[in-house]
Amino acid sequence: MTISRLTLQNFRNYPQLRLETAPGFIVLSGDNGAGKTNILEAVSLLSPGRGLRRAALKDIAYEKGSGDFAVAAELGDVQLGTGTSAEYPERRKTRVNGAAVPTNDLAQWLSILWLTPAMDRLFMEGPSGRRNFLDRLVTALEPDHARNCTRYDAARRERNRLLADDYMPDTEWLEALDRQLIKFGTAVAQARRRITQALNMLLEETDDGLFAAAKLHLDDSGFHEQEALLHALKANRQADRAAGRTLQGPHRADLTVFHSTKDQAAEKCSTGEQKALLFSIILAHADLIARQRGSRPILLLDEVAAHLDPKRRAALFGKLSEKGGQVWLTGTEPELFDDTPDTRLHFKVSGGKVTMR
């Protein structure tokens, strides 16, 4: 999975940008605020979801532009594009080879993983961020997962609206919505279980001491089984109506990560250990994608080199180089990337302009 050309229009601080890229390391260095992460965000939008910043679409468009934006990429003879129009700035449209497709279909063409400084808080904040993180991992391997999540959430919103009605809800419609929740909810929960189990097996196999050994635990209350979800939905209707929302289901699941060597939950580990745990998960997941899909995902690593000592940084670059695939890296100091292969493409980013170093 390699982007050979990336084109931006009216994206963040880029009125226009075209980058010719290649397999291997794509390094973007420059001062804070120059626009390095904006480029990674553009690449991340070539996958389902809201990108690595989870930003509102209206906030992505170039401030001095017409209110729309576009991101396009070439992958061999395949062209991907996504963006908005000035007329509908909150509606994202996606095309593959010129044909309109649902945005979730991007997962059929690209698997993209990322690590950003904001993810350092993943283990300390609420479960929604960890669910989103896990769902991205699943979608990279099972593209239909994003669609199942969307359909489950749509059915749940409609069920919540129906339960919140002042009148007695339409029983037949409620039963129909419950069937949708069971169908898509169990599919979501089962996919999450599959990826969690597969990652745990691979993490145990490939622990090389480079980063903290991670172990994942999914708390989904058994809702991967249809009977369990059916019982919860029926038993809690009165409580759900009083609360105005569906209180139980896969949307309440949580992912817990442990430092397996110390047998300690990630939220109790040091900041450095938490970062190392994230590294180990992302690297193992990239290996899992390569095994199951036959090609490595695109990795977006934002400001990761600055958090590693020189020895571990060199070891990371060596491992990434050995594995292959396209890796996008950002950092403020060009010297941080001296240990990357000589074949890297190293760009200087300054004031919304990108030039080759």
Rank of each mutant, 00 (worst) to 15 (best):
Arg159Asp: 06
Leu75Glu: 05
Thr94Tyr: 02
Ile298Lys: 04
Ala70Val: 13
Ala198Gly: 00
Asp77Arg: 13
Glu175Ala: 14
Met119Val: 05
Arg157His: 10
Val257Lys: 13
Thr343Phe: 00
Ala191Gly: 07
Pro334Thr: 09
Glu227Ser: 10
Gln274Tyr: 01
Tyr62Thr: 15
Leu57Trp: 00
Lys323Trp: 01
Asp105Met: 13
Trp114Ile: 13
Asn160His: 02
Ile195Ala: 09
Ala314His: 02
Gly33Trp: 00
Arg130Gln: 11
Gly244Asn: 10
Arg95Ile: 01
Asp153Gly: 04
Lys93Ile: 09
Asp207His: 14
Pro143Gln: 11
Arg159Met: 12
Asp254Leu: 13
Leu6Asn: 09
Pro48Ala: 07
Lys93Thr: 09
Leu163Ala: 06
His231Val: 11
Ala118Arg: 14
Ser111Tyr: 00
Glu20Cys: 03
Asp120Ala: 14
Leu75Arg: 11
Gly33Ala: 10
Phe347Pro: 12
His285Lys: 10
Ala61Asn: 02
Gln180Tyr: 02
Ala146Glu: 03
Asp178Lys: 14
Thr343Pro: 05
Val101Asn: 03
Ser44Phe: 04
Ser295Lys: 11
Leu45Ala: 03
Asn38Pro: 12
Thr7His: 00
Leu19Asp: 02
Asp309Trp: 00
His224Asn: 09
Leu308Glu: 03
Asp135Val: 09
Ala239Gln: 07
Leu230Trp: 01
Asn132Met: 06
His217Met: 13
Ser85Gly: 14
Met356Ile: 03
Pro102Asn: 06
Arg50Gly: 04
Pro143Lys: 12
